[in-house]
């Protein structure tokens, strides 16, 4: 398409034009390679460091490709304490997602379909809540979780994470429900279905991609979270999540970069996989949410 466009309305010589096109293409590829390296380089370096023998990690001239592949670190990461932290992260993130997506699917649908009094302000609040700095919520939620006796438990962290995943997921899901024509619900109700049935049987299945991406989004926010995890479960090392464990790993006696990279990789891979599965819906959801309001 670009190629065709280039020839519209030009009266310059084709030779000059071909030169210009080659130059422009070369520039494009050069830029593409640079951008690609910037984006993936650090990830490749993480993989390379995680896999190479220690002797090749601590060298002044970096060894880019490991001479032999060391898998042991992953065994240690998955079987040792990190296995425990991984499990904690999984439990906390999945519970957060389950609760917030369930609550948000219902709320998002109501907000998309019903004329609610003060709806405008409610929507502003939900959008605004995503902007709250975590640090503002940290101390009051800490006090709340303490009063509930949930410090040092999964429940405390899940509660804290609901504070930022719920508004986000409500927002994304409302966008998805809005994009589903209301006629579908109406025709189901003409056929005798109750409104709840219409929601459950017609709308929810249609919104599945949206729910999946909202779940992934909520999952990633919870999976990534450091500040609350750092402050809430300090007194119970067995309850640490991966970000906390990784952050602590760095300050330890001798910094074992190979192990840290292996652990980081284990921490990163699930997110990347989820992300690649649903990023299209997610970006759409976010931009839709952001732009269309």
């Amino acid at each position: 398409m670009n190629a065709n466009r280039d020839f519209i309305g030009t009266d310059r010589s084709t030779a000059y034009h071909r030169m210009a096109r080659i130059a422009s293409l070369t520039g494009t590829y050069f830029a593409a390679i640079l951008v690609g390296l910037f984006a993936v380089g650090p990830i490749l370096w993480m993989i390379s460091t995680a896999l190479k023998p220690n002797a090749e990690i601590f060298t002044r001239t970096p060894v880019l490709i490991p001479s032999t592949v060391v898998w042991d670190r992953f065994v240690i990461v998955l079987t040792g304490d990190f296995g425990r932290y991984l499990l904690n992260s999984i439990i906390v993130s999945f519970s957060t997602v389950a609760l917030s997506v369930t609550a948000a699917a219902m709320a998002g649908w109501v907000l998309a379909r019903y004329p609610i009094p003060l709806k405008r302000y409610l929507l502003i609040l939900i959008l605004g809540a995503q902007m709250f700095p975590f640090v503002v919520l940290l101390i009051p939620i800490f006090i709340l979780v303490r009063q509930l006796g949930l410090i040092g438990t999964y429940g405390g962290l899940v509660l804290a994470y609901l504070s930022f995943t719920t508004p986000l997921v409500v927002w994304i899901l409302r966008g998805f429900f809005l994009s589903i024509p209301i006629e579908l619900e109406e025709s189901a109700m003409v056929d005798g279905a109750t409104r709840v049935q219409a929601f459950r049987k017609i709308i929810l299945p249609m919104a599945l991609p949206g729910i999946a991406s909202a779940s992934v989004f909520g999952f990633i926010s919870a999976w990534n979270e450091l500040l609350f995890a750092l402050s809430f479960n300090r007194n119970n090392p067995s309850m640490h999540t991966l970000p906390v464990a990784l952050q602590q790993f760095i300050g330890r006696e001798t910094t074992d970069w190979g192990m840290i990279m292996a652990a980081s990789l284990v921490f990163t891979i699930p997110v990347v996989v989820f992300f690649l599965l649903t990023h299209k819906h997610m970006t759409k959801g976010m931009v839709m949410g952001a732009v269309k309001g």
């Binding site: 439990i91 999945f94 519970s95 389950a98």
Partner: peptide, 14 residues
């Protein structure tokens, strides 16, 4: 998975 983890989390209360 969600259901499983929620159940696990519920059972995990120290």
């Amino acid at each position: 998975l969600l259901v499983m983890t929620v159940l696990m989390a519920a059972g995990q209360r120290e």
